[in-house]
Design a binder for these strands. Structure first.
Lengths: 223, 223
DNA sequence: ACAAAAGTGTTGCCAGTACACCCATGA
DNA sequence: TCATGGGTGTACTGGCAACACTTTTGT
């Protein structure tokens, strides 16, 4: 058990699917690859794991440096370890999902000019490198399963939001339409949200009340 | 992104929490450590991952060789990557849960004499090495969350079983008592099981009907 | 006044729960 | 015949789904 040889050493990369809400749409952050192979294709953010840092430290540091987000919510997803998932080199990917609210995205810190990044609607994801499309698919699936049994989406809505906005996000992730009245009833009756007393005026139609998630709500499920 | 140095190489081990049912009790398989440090303590089965095998191949091969199980059901659990989770050496643990029915346990193949192993009731787990107690705790939690929304436990019951037996397993994992009549109603109404026509006679009290899981039932949740 | 979008109330159904009685066997 | 444990039926309840009308704003 304690015998290590050359074959026992592996390259590990952490890859993260960062989601946010931009103009009511659920989006994922991708970087553009700069060199061959797959030059110009899109890819998930992430980097090789050093042997002096944990998975969580690695991805937090990376995200801060390269995306400028200091308060990203992170959860582990799956490990992808097929021998040939990356050509030429054997690289194991440990993957995470990250959630960040749009306000924190706007307030992001300095990031390198050299990185070309873009938020993509989860329904129109471009061609990505290696097995990243598979990883993204699993990440969205993970998110979908998660929001059914937990209130994880509050990580995407720390600031004031309207119930119709929240509903549209649920509809995008679950990929089905929900009833306005029942949706409201569920959230209000569970005591997850509270009225801020403000309204978002200035749009066509009746202004919607602004809500916020209560602070003291804990996650329900670990997985 | 493609620059690797010495710091980029890591030792990865796969560790697996294998569960079965033995005499109605949910049990987990542990090995006994043979050398210092922690000599004599118990530990999860698992081994270092070579760079020519996937996580799933690695753990399947290991389990076959060292536990003798050829048809173990496996799912990924969490990754543990704290720098000092193992003393002296940096080792990352990717963990899995495994489920095997008691009949397959009895029919297991040859395994090395040198391995000392034992099935422990999940309520009375002995002292384990490193962070294995934490890993075991999370594995049980994973299993608990899983059986609520899926029929994963059919992996533990491929052969005939009685409903009271099945119920007791649910009660152990969920750690709460369930109503006999409602439990039966749920499984029968969902069409997950079918009557084999046999009974388990020879015990005190009325004999229980023997059921089996239907073959065509798929998993419902991925996570 | 009209259009657009948000807010509200009622009803029915199904799943889960609580609970009491009967049945088949071994001793 | 009694003890033991398994099988069955009923009534209640709360959550979810289906559905139509009213309210508040901008134009």
């Amino acid at each position: 058990m304690n015998n290590y040889n050359n074959d026992s050493y592996n390259i590990i990369e952490t890859l993260i699917s960062i989601f946010t809400i931009e103009k009511g749409e659920v989006k994922i952050l991708l970087f553009r690859k700069k060199n061959e192979p797959y030059k110009g294709y899109w890819m998930l953010p992430g980097k090789v794991l050093n042997n002096n840092e944990s998975l969580e430290e690695n991805i937090s540091d990376y995200v801060l440096e390269n995306c400028g987000f200091s308060n990203l919510y992170i959860e582990q997803c799956l490990v992808f370890s097929d021998i040939d998932r990356v050509p030429d080199k054997r690289v194991i990917a440990t993957t995470c999902i990250g959630l960040i609210d749009s306000k924190s995205v706007e307030l992001k810190q300095e990031i390198p000019d050299s990185i070309e990044s873009e938020w993509f609607n989860i329904l129109t994801i471009p061609k990505t490198i290696y097995d990243h499309d598979e990883i993204i698919k699993k990440s969205i699936e993970y998110l979908k399963n998660k929001i059914i049994n937990s209130n994880i989406l509050k990580m995407l809505f720390p600031s004031d939001f309207t119930l119709p906005e929240l509903q549209k996000v649920y509809e995008q992730i679950l990929d089905k339409e929900l009833d306005r009245r029942n949706f409201r009833k569920k959230f209000v009756s569970q005591g997850l949200i509270e009225d801020t007393g403000y309204k978002n005026e200035g749009f066509s139609g009746r202004p919607a009340k602004l809500y916020r998630f209560k602070d003291d709500i804990e996650e329900m499920n670990l997985f």
